[in-house]
C-alpha cells in the first residue's frame, strides 16, 4: 500500500474482531472493508448485526479486540491518535435528546470547537456555517426542548460539523424521526456529501435511505455478507430475506409483478416503476 492510496482512503478495517465481553459471541467477526474519501456508504443489517458497533469502533469509542482500524492512515488503537481521529470522524447518534449538552442551540454547537481549542472568534464563524449547512440559522438562540425531532437532529449534525470533520457517521440517526424529519436529515446528508465532499457512513434500517448511497454494505451476525451498489444489492431479494432484511417497498411490488408474468425491469423508485408499467401496458401489440 503506497502513500497515495493511504491518503485517499478515509476508513479502513482489516480483519477486525470485537466482542463486548469475554464470554459473548463476536459482535464483529473478521470484518474488512474500506471507505474512500468523499464516498457515501450505507451500512445495513438487522438488529444485532454489528452495525452500530462498527460506528463506535471507527472513532475509538470502542476498541477492537483484534485487527486494525485506520482513519486517514492513523491507527485508531494508538491512544496518541485518538484526539485527531475524533476530530476527523464525527458521529451523530440515534436519540437527539441524549447528545446535547446545552439548553441553547448555539452553545451546544460551540461545545465541540471549544473542546478542541478553537479561538473564540472562529467558533462564532463555525456556528454560523454549521447552522446554515443544516438550515437552522434562525434557531441559533432557541432552546432545543422546543424543536421537533428532525430539527434537534439537525442541530446534533451541526454540533458535529462545527468540529470540521472529514467523515460524518450517522448511527441510526433517523430511526426515531417521523418521515418529515427523516427527509430533512437525508437532504442535509446528501448536500454535505455532494457539495462539501464529505465522506458519509450511514447506518440505517430504512432501505429507502440506503438506496441513496454510493455503496451499500450488508452486515449479518458480525460479518459482511454483501457489498456493492445499492441497485445491485436490492435486486437480490431472496438473499436479503435470509439476512432478515426486506426489500424496499417498490422492489417488492416490482418482483411480484414480474412473477405475474410482466416483463418489467427491476425498479426501486415509484416513478421508475410507473414508467415501466405504463410503457408495457401501452406498447403497441
Amino acid at each position: 500500500m503506497d502513500m497515495q492510496e493511504t491518503e485517499s482512503v478515509a476508513v479502513r478495517f482489516e480483519n477486525v474482531k470485537f466482542k463486548y465481553d469475554q464470554n459473548s459471541r463476536y459482535a464483529l467477526n473478521n470484518v474488512s472493508f474500506s471507505v474512500k474519501e468523499g464516498e457515501f456508504v450505507a451500512l445495513i443489517g438487522h438488529n444485532g448485526s454489528g452495525k452500530s458497533t462498527t460506528a463506535r469502533l471507527i472513532n475509538g469509542l470502542l476498541e477492537a479486540t483484534s485487527g486494525k482500524i485506520t482513519v486517514f492512515g492513523k491507527d485508531v488503537s494508538d491512544k496518541k491518535n485518538l484526539f485527531e481521529v475524533r476530530k476527523s470522524a464525527g458521529i451523530v447518534f440515534q436519540n437527539p435528546d441524549n447528545q446535547m449538552v446545552s439548553s441553547i442551540v448555539e452553545d451546544d454547537v460551540a461545545f465541540g470547537p471549544e473542546n478542541i481549542g478553537v479561538p473564540r472568534e472562529e467558533i462564532g464563524e463555525r456556528i454560523e456555517w454549521a447552522l446554515s449547512v443544516v438550515g437552522m440559522t434562525a434557531y441559533r438562540n432557541s432552546s432545543p426542548a422546543r424543536l421537533s425531532g428532525g430539527q434537534k437532529q439537525r442541530i446534533a449534525i451541526a454540533g458535529v460539523l462545527a468540529i470540521k470533520p472529514k467523515i460524518l457517521i450517522l448511527d441510526e440517526s433517523t430511526a426515531m424521526l417521523d418521515p418529515k424529519g427523516r427527509k430533512e436529515i437525508m437532504d442535509v446528508v446528501l448536500r454535505l456529501n455532494k457539495e462539501e465532499k464529505m465522506t458519509v457512513i450511514m447506518i440505517t434500517h430504512f432501505m429507502e435511505e440506503a438506496l441513496l448511497a454510493d455503496r451499500t454494505v450488508v452486515l449479518n451476525r458480525g460479518k459482511i455478507v454483501l457489498e456493492g451498489e445499492p441497485q445491485d444489492i436490492f435486486k437480490n431479494s431472496e438473499l436479503l430475506e435470509t439476512y432478515n432484511l426486506s426489500l424496499p417497498g417498490i422492489g417488492y411490488i416490482c418482483k411480484q409483478l414480474q412473477k405475474n408474468g410482466m416483463a418489467i425491469r427491476d425498479c426501486l423508485y415509484p416513478e421508475e416503476l410507473a414508467e415501466e408499467i405504463a410503457s408495457l401496458l401501452q406498447e403497441e401489440s
Binding site: 475524533r86 447518534f93 441524549n98 461545545f111 465541540g112 473542546n115 454540533g159 458535529v160 468540529i163
Partner: peptide
C-alpha cells in the same frame, strides 16, 4: 449515551 456523544465531540 451523552457520555459517548461528548467523547465523540472531543470532550
Amino acid at each position: 449515551e451523552l457520555g459517548d456523544a461528548m467523547d465523540a465531540r472531543c470532550y
